[in-house]
Design a protein around this nucleic acid. Structure first.
Lengths: 340, 340
DNA sequence: TGAGGCGATGTTATCGATAACACCATAACG
DNA sequence: CGTTATGGTGTTATCGATAACATCGCCTCA
């Protein structure tokens, strides 16, 4: 294998080498307590020479404090969530915290399993991404936890200690207002996997209700079997436009699907935003790096991750905070004049 | 806060409730040893009623075995690496292993720090992504480890116990052959952050050397200050084409940059692949979901992650394997006839 | 019938650290 | 000169589990 199976260097070895008690070594390593500068240096050097590496498992067990934070997101290959994750670790890592990740794939049972496993690792905190329905099992587990838990990506859900994210209901409403303000009335929604993703569904429902309030009916074209990606957006848009050629506006579940849709619309010679108005969701950089300018809702994904991490840190510092942080929703207008 | 700070349920509590020793409970929870069906059930039920959750930190400390695997990747917001990660967790999670993540951002010192922290968590194994230079500190740390470590994303580097990934040198050579076979002689390379990313640099160098062997000089247009993204690819391509309008072929550091390049080329009225031949790297789905068909090298990212995980599992099972798995390189040909 | 096997459970000794407190010089102080 | 801080260090008792071995009926077979 190449790696040593040999003896592990522990506090005891360092202590023996220096001729002090292991408590002294422990204090030196953690920079606590009163240690004379001289012994401090001797210990440091001995530790270095022996290649001593503290065992944080033992430390955590003893102090009943860990520096591990569990994060559960629906999927890692979706850039949206991995950017949130990136924000989280960017804040936590420099402060000595480690994140371990779980992918729920929008499955409540998987999520519950992950929560169980994570709690058994005695985390300092838990960050749970919205979108997945919280099973009863998961709720029971969470009640027993002895660490703060934060709801990510959805500030409408306030079951946990803190929520960070947008109001998806508000986002849906925002899109409705955007369309209505332009006098558009033949409006469609294109999405996928809505049965699983509660956040997306919440936006869809809000859009539908807000439109209904204005007497406008929403056409829905969705698929539960294909992924929420460009290809699906393209197919569904084609399907939609054939069934209802007079469609004036489309809201997509996310930017990727919108991009697929734009691709079809352009090919079919339908001008955007001339003939049809398109709104995506997320504000991912992909569509905008090239020549498309997609109207979308910017989700400040990294900021949400960072904010959640900060909230967690605050709760760990003073165990009294209880609030939530609502991400502001920006509808970024682009004008899609060129092909995708 | 909402979460209980109260008493923690341990083995002892369950044991007391059932009237057996804690060892018995421990065995039941882990499904080992000989336990009568009757006590097994009683223990299970008591554990459930008390809401007992095993403390895996304590378990790991005692058994000197953990089920945590540390993974270090350069960046999580780069979809390439997060897909590798996704493959890793897809294999490890169902087997009871947890992955904790570190982002090195191609910084050797950050990587060393991450390795140190991860080792102190007593991981079952370590997966280190290629690309980042391994600092001397990191090497010293790795020598002291007592768990298998696997090199990801780069099979040319065989410092660790196992390597999974492509040969970047080979990839560069492959591209050279692709161009030369087509009789192209004015060839350029467009990339970014080459000083940091050793894998990318290795491809670049191999390309240059293979071309030189055929008497062809490679034009290099790179930037160290802008990110490896579409926008940079676009800018650099523009710069390249102005300086050298007769360029016949361009190899890009990755697909995103290639996409940016294509966008410029199309706008400038330069036909691809008619006037100029373009090859990207990675085989990400982004370019292909729309209407572009980019010639690229498919990296089977998820497969690499899965393979690495399997290799790790194998090494944990029988501590004698020592090999490497070389990902096959597919050059996927597309014909970019339409605009981006 | 007594050695041995076996299924089921309990005992003891860690694992590597930390919290909390005890201890003991020496310095400061009234 | 006894009394109290205080800086520096050591002791003891966990933390929550597991490995390894011990134990103890009870059954089997030579």
């Amino acid at each position: 294998m190449g790696h040593k199976r040999g003896k592990i260097v522990t506090l005891v070895d360092v202590a023996a080498k220096v001729g002090v008690s292991r408590m002294t070594v422990s204090k030196v390593m953690r920079d606590v307590g009163n240690i004379s500068e001289e012994t401090r240096l001797r210990v440091k050097r001995a530790a270095d020479e022996l290649g001593y590496l503290p065992n944080s498992l033992a430390g955590s067990l003893s102090s009943r404090k860990s520096r591990m934070v569990g994060v559960i997101i629906p999927s890692m290959s979706d850039i949206v969530f991995s950017e949130v994750l990136s924000g989280v670790t960017a804040v936590l890592r420099p402060r000595g915290f480690h994140t371990f990740i779980g992918e729920s794939h929008f499955d409540p049972d998987v999520e519950a399993g992950l929560i169980r496993e994570m709690l058994s690792l005695q985390p300092a905190g838990l960050l749970l991404n919205g979108g997945t329905a919280r099973s009863r099992d998961a709720q029971r587990l969470l009640e027993k936890r002895n660490c703060p838990a934060i709801q990510l990506w959805d500030c409408d859900n306030t079951d946990l200690d803190f929520s960070v994210g947008p109001s998806h209901a508000e986002a849906g409403h925002l899109v409705a207002m955007h369309f209505l303000a332009r006098g558009l009335r033949r409006i469609a929604y294109v999405g996928a996997e809505l049965e699983k993703d509660l956040c997306a569904r919440s936006r869809y429902v809000a859009l539908r209700l807000s439109l209904a309030a204005a007497g406008v009916e929403l056409v829905e074209v969705t698929s539960e079997t294909t992924p929420r990606q460009a290809a699906t957006g393209r197919t569904l848009t084609q399907q939609l436009m054939r069934a209802d050629p007079d469609t004036q506006a489309i809201h997509y579940l996310n930017d990727a699907m919108a991009l697929g849709g734009l691709s079809y619309l352009h090919e079919a010679g339908i001008a955007v935003p001339g003939q049809i108005s398109v709104v995506g969701f997320n504000g991912t950089s992909i569509p905008n790096t090239v020549r498309t300018r997609l109207t979308t809702i910017d989700m400040q994904r990294t900021a949400i991750g960072e904010m959640a991490a900060h909230a967690l840190l605050t709760m760990l510092a003073n165990a009294n905070t209880e609030r939530s942080w609502r991400a502001t929703l920006h509808l970024v207008q682009g004008n899609t004049t060129t092909a995708v």
